[in-house]
Amino acid sequence: MENNISLTLKVWRQSDSKAKGGFETYKLETVSTDSSFLEMMDILNEQLVGEGKEPVAFDHDCREGICGMCSLYINGRPHGPDDDVTTCQLHMRKFKNNETITIEPWRSAGFPVIKDLIVDRTAFDQIIAAGGYTSVSTGGVPDANALPIPKDDADEAMDAASCIGCGACVATCKNGSAMLFVSAKVSHLALLPQGQVEAALRAKAMVGKMDELGFGACTNTGACEVECPKGVSIANIARLNREYLSAKLKD
C-alpha cells in the first residue's frame, strides 16, 4: 500500500512579526502517502536542519485533530484539501506526485503573523474572556441532575461546543469575520439552562469584543462552516443574531 511522492513546497517564511516575509521554495523527495501533512513538514524541517537552515515554524500539538493548535492555509484552503479535518489529520494521499503545494499562515487582521506559519490567535481568548462562560465559582452548585435538559438541546449544545478554536473560519472568511467562533460559544451556552441566565449579557459582550478586535461582519457566505474541521453550522450564527438583537432591543 505504501506509496511515495515527490513534492515542491512553496512555504511562507517570515522571521518575526515585523519582518516582511515571502515565499521560499523547497523540494522534497520520497514522502510516503501514508504520512500526515505535519509529518511531511517534519521531514522538511529535518532536511532543513541537516542543511543548517532554520526549520519552518508552525503551530501544532495534539496531532489528532482536537487541540485546535494546527493551522496552515494549504492550496487555497484552511486545513487543506480534505473535508472535516484539521491539518494534522490531513494525509499526503490527498496529493499527487510532483504537485506544488502552497503553504501560508492564516491571514486576517485579527490574526497577525508571529513567525513563518504561526499566527497570534489570542483574540479568541479575549473574546471568551469577555463573556464566554457561566458565572459559577467552584463549589456551591446544585446536583448535576437537578435540571433535566432535553436530549436534543444537550446534543445541539454539544455540536456547537465542539468548536476547537483553530480559527479556520476566520482564515477562510472573505470578511475576516469571527462570527462562527463567537456564535458557537454563544449557542453552546444559550441552549443550556445553566447558560440561559447570562445569555443576553454574553451575546452583547462577546460581539462587542469581537468588533473591537477588528474582525469583520458576517455576510452569510457559509465558507466558514465548509472549512470548519468540526462541522459547526452557521445555524449558530442565526442564533447569535437572534440572541444579540433581542438583547439589544430589550436594553
Partner: peptide, 24 residues
C-alpha cells in the same frame, strides 16, 4: 470587511467549494 481581511492576500487564492458565488 476588507480591512478585517488584512493587507496580505492569500497567494493560493480561495478554493473553498460549496460556497454560493453570489454570496461572495
Amino acid at each position: 470587511n476588507n480591512k478585517a481581511r488584512g493587507n496580505n492576500k492569500y497567494a493560493s487564492g480561495n478554493n473553498t467549494k460549496e460556497v454560493m458565488w453570489a454570496s461572495k
